[in-house]
Simulated scan of single mutants.
Amino acid sequence: MRASEGVPLITYQRTLDLTPLAQARARLPSPPGFAAIIAKAFALVAREQPVLRTLVVDFPWPHFYELPRSVGAIAIAREIDGEDCVLIQKLVAPDELALTGVDALIREAQTLPINEVPMFRKLLRISALPWPLRRIAWWSGLSLARQRANYFGSFGLSSVSAIGPGNLYPTSPGPYMLSYGRLGDDSRLDMVIRFDHRLIDAAPIARIMTRLEQVLNTAIAGELQAMHSPSTGHPPVRAVGI
């Protein structure tokens, strides 16, 4: 929260029509969760749009730093010693992984013992440091470009849709924070993106949201369809422009 105070986050929200995706997902007995679906789709769009892989870094002077690959930071609700908390699972290049692999990494973070998740162990070690050392560790994670990606990713993802309806507008050190609601009976999904206004304006974000909807209904829907009938020989939904 302290790291997010100085980030000028702007919110853009749109309702996406995900009929092809919803139809393909409904055919699977155990479909991938929407966290994995959104993370991979956004990383696929970021493959085309370098600005979605760009960080705003302050050290040694304010500058932009473009990452070669997307890194997702997925908020995971867990319990430690009887206390509710939120930890971060890192997804490196989810666009290069099978959707089942992305989903497995998220589910492991949700179910494995805390000390068996490498990213959780790293975060808890830092949190246990004395205040001066902890502050230095946070500073290096925020100020050094490669460490920024390692700790905070190029985009974040957080949602409470599994608990109930409603939209979430989380803060983040940036540059992008995604959230989504529940998929409606009409196959429509509320999607929220909060973005660092120093990096990008609202008009490109609106176009990116349109592209995200296209990718969800083509590349991701096609992969889900292939999971339903991997040996039928019928081609999946064609992934336009990927």
Rank of each mutant, 00 (worst) to 15 (best):
residue 213 E to Q: 15
residue 165 P to I: 04
residue 220 I to C: 02
residue 188 R to G: 04
residue 175 P to D: 07
residue 165 P to R: 12
residue 166 G to N: 10
residue 222 G to R: 01
residue 160 V to Q: 07
residue 217 N to F: 01
residue 159 S to L: 05
residue 168 L to G: 01
residue 204 P to W: 14
residue 193 I to N: 01
residue 179 S to V: 10
residue 208 I to Q: 01
residue 206 A to D: 13
residue 186 D to G: 06
residue 195 F to H: 13
residue 222 G to E: 03
residue 184 G to A: 11
residue 220 I to H: 00
residue 171 T to Q: 11
residue 168 L to K: 03
residue 169 Y to F: 15
residue 172 S to M: 08
residue 159 S to P: 13
residue 217 N to A: 08
residue 191 M to I: 12
residue 203 A to Q: 11
residue 218 T to V: 11
residue 154 S to H: 08
residue 192 V to F: 00
residue 170 P to C: 11
residue 179 S to M: 07
residue 171 T to C: 03
residue 216 L to E: 03
residue 161 S to L: 08
residue 224 L to C: 07
residue 177 M to L: 09
residue 188 R to D: 00
residue 202 A to F: 11
residue 219 A to S: 14
residue 191 M to C: 14
residue 158 S to G: 11
residue 184 G to H: 07
residue 173 P to W: 15
residue 160 V to R: 07
residue 200 I to E: 03
residue 181 G to K: 01
residue 196 D to C: 15
residue 193 I to E: 04
residue 221 A to H: 00
residue 224 L to M: 11
residue 197 H to E: 09
residue 214 Q to T: 14
residue 165 P to M: 13
residue 185 D to V: 14
residue 158 S to C: 09
residue 180 Y to D: 00
residue 189 L to H: 10
residue 182 R to G: 14
residue 193 I to L: 14
residue 166 G to S: 04
residue 177 M to I: 15
residue 194 R to E: 14
residue 153 G to Q: 10
residue 213 E to W: 06
residue 173 P to M: 09
residue 190 D to Q: 11
residue 174 G to V: 07
residue 209 M to F: 14
